[in-house]
């Protein structure tokens, strides 16, 4: 109860914090929408008249915006400038702050980005079955969690290195290649397709978009695997957090 109140408060605070930089949020929307939209243009040219591919990339734009994670900025910077010390002395788990910031930024990205996505859907004539969209929602929630955990895990390397942006940048490349932006899962070459299906990156983006577009049959196993990756990354993030804080409090805060 207290935890949910604190998260709600952190979301509110960060929502207000980001209200002061709405123009920056707009630039983030453009940054995050441009990848899937280029994919839409390219793959529409490769597969002209394929309605599923249009539906997939439009949905992918929305998923990309709603799962965006910036913990290399919202958390790692606080390690570098020392303000994480304030957070360590607050009577709440430190992760609640970055989690609140994450949700608040996604709210802003949704506010600015979803109208853009709807516009693209109207222009391209993409239409969805509401059952497919509903079916995609649990996967979208897990994707949002998974992507936060992935970026948070990479951002925690700030305890060891000052090059966290390069590390998170590499993580984002993996998401781009295996996540379904470069190509839908079904269009990846054989062994890449197998790897992408097993790795967590497709579950961060392409899976909910694919379910909403109606291009994935038997997605139950994929969602189960997605949940499994959430457990693995949670455990990993907890272990790295403990180790990072131990180092931080040993070498100087």
């Amino acid at each position: 109860m207290r935890t949910s109140r604190l998260i709600a408060l952190a979301v509110r605070n960060q929502f207000l914090e980001w209200a002061g930089t709405w123009w920056f949020t707009v630039s983030l929307v453009v940054n995050y929408a441009v990848g899937p939209l280029i994919g839409l243009v390219v793959w529409s040219a490769v597969l002209p008249g394929d309605e599923v591919i249009v539906r997939y990339f439009v949905a992918l734009t929305a998923v990309h915006l709603l799962t965006a994670s910036f913990e290399d900025y919202t958390f790692a910077e606080s390690v570098y400038d020392g303000t994480v010390g304030h957070q360590l002395l607050e009577p709440q788990p430190v992760v609640l702050g970055p989690a609140g910031a994450n949700l608040a930024i996604r709210l802003w990205l949704g506010l600015f980005g979803l109208p853009l996505t709807v516009t693209v859907a109207l222009v391209t004539g993409a239409s969805y079955r509401w059952q497919a969209v509903l079916l995609a929602l649990p996967s979208l929630v897990l994707a949002a969690l998974l992507r936060f955990l992935w970026t948070w895990l990479l951002a925690l390397t700030a305890f060891w290195t000052e090059r966290v942006h390069a590390i998170v940048g590499f993580g984002n490349i993996l998401v781009f290649v295996f996540g379904g932006i470069a190509a839908p899962l079904g269009d990846l070459p054989g062994s890449w397709q197998t790897a992408a299906a097993l790795l967590p990156f497709h579950a961060m983006l392409g899976l909910p978009a694919g379910i909403a577009a109606g291009m994935l049959s038997g997605s139950g196993t994929a969602v189960a695997l997605q949940a499994g990756w959430c457990v693995v990354l949670t455990a990993g993030a907890m272990a790295v957090w403990r180790s990072g804080v131990r180092r931080y409090t040993a070498v100087g805060a």
Binding site: L9, N13, E17, G20, T21, G85, H86, P91
Partner: peptide, 23 residues
């Protein structure tokens, strides 16, 4: 570094946050 947390918040917002944080 006298104040931590979100710097865009007003002083009153921050005080209300402390109220919830410290119960």
């Amino acid at each position: 570094r006298p104040t931590g947390g979100a710097q865009e918040l007003t002083v009153l917002d921050s005080l209300q946050y402390q109220r919830v944080l410290y119960g």
